[in-house]
């Protein structure tokens, strides 16, 4: 084995996680989709990295970056977990600019030695190298929403453009977003109840935007609009979105995001319902 490779091999052995990317934006774009809180928890296994952000014990966002996205990906232990300041991580990942000149790529090498060690980032663009040492924090227990596909009552897959405008123009004076899913009319309805009045947006089930429609039972659930609004970040990047609710009224939004190299990544939001809808209103 040539001396240089030998050296890199030895170096890799001391790290519990090593990941390299030719285009750092394939990672930073996905992380921006869940950046609505300062801190995130990262879990790495041989399958890839899952980054989780939570708010108010009611909403959770997960970004999955599978091992195949990386040019090099090794995890020494069964799983590696740490908590990190996501704002700082994103600033570091985009140190050479958020909108690079076309044709220039920033390469990334990311190493983590284990519990108590900082996350090391080596970024390179056009011969300029940036080294970042981000301190990691004690991982926190993340919420388990116990969202199980066997309990899913209603499921709709939409082309994201169908939801993009609706979400960007949500009436933020309304405290809640009410989602109605039903095998009968109105099939799929988004409602807000704001200062200027109520608004309802209906999607017919035979719309071109509707890729799949599997609704078994009428469900009307309300979700805090302030908790759902951040998912717009993922929505604008995605091409398709799957909207599911389970028997408890929990909501799952899965966004399919295609990166610059045409690979598919997923970002998932879970949100618990706001309250029981009073009988008289439904």
């Amino acid at each position: 084995m040539p001396l240089l490779t030998q050296h890199i091999q030895d170096e890799n052995d001391q790290y519990s996680l090593v990941a390299s990317l030719d285009n750092v934006r394939n990672l930073s774009t996905i992380l921006k989709a869940i950046h609505f809180r300062e801190h995130a928890t990262c879990f790495a296994t041989k399958n890839g990295i899952k980054v989780t952000v939570e708010n108010a014990k009611c909403v959770q966002a997960n970004a999955f970056i599978q091992a195949g996205i990386f040019q090099e990906f090794t995890v020494q232990e069964e799983s590696v977990t740490f908590r990190i300041n996501l704002t700082v991580l994103l600033d570091c990942l985009s140190i050479f600019g958020s909108n690079p000149m076309p044709g220039t790529l920033t390469a990334l090498r990311m190493c983590y030695q284990g519990y108590g060690y900082p996350l090391m980032l080596f970024l390179e663009e056009g011969g300029v190298v940036t080294v970042c040492k981000i301190n990691t924090q004690e991982p926190e227990e993340t919420l388990d929403f116990d969202f199980c596909s066997t309990n899913v009552i209603n499921k709709i897959i939409l082309q994201s453009e169908g939801l993009r405008e609706a979400f960007s123009e949500l009436d933020m004076t309304s405290e809640v977003l009410q989602i109605t899913m039903s095998p009968n009319k109105p099939y799929f309805r988004l409602s807000t109840f704001g200062n200027a009045g109520s608004s309802h947006l209906d999607y017919p089930k035979d719309s071109d935007l509707m890729e799949a429609f599997h609704c078994n039972q009428t469900q009307v659930n309300r979700y805090k609009i302030s908790l759902l609004k951040p998912s717009t970040k993922a929505l604008v990047l995605s091409c398709k979105v799957s909207i599911r609710t389970d028997n408890r009224g929990f909501l799952s939004l899965q966004y399919m995001i295609r990166n610059e190299d045409g690979q598919i990544c997923f970002v998932e939001y879970y949100c618990c319902p706001d309250e029981e809808v009073p009988e008289s209103e439904s």
Partner: peptide, 12 residues
């Protein structure tokens, strides 16, 4: 800072 050290190296 307490949180992070960042160094950008320009060469040659």
């Amino acid at each position: 800072t307490e949180l992070v050290c960042v160094t950008t190296h320009f060469k040659d």
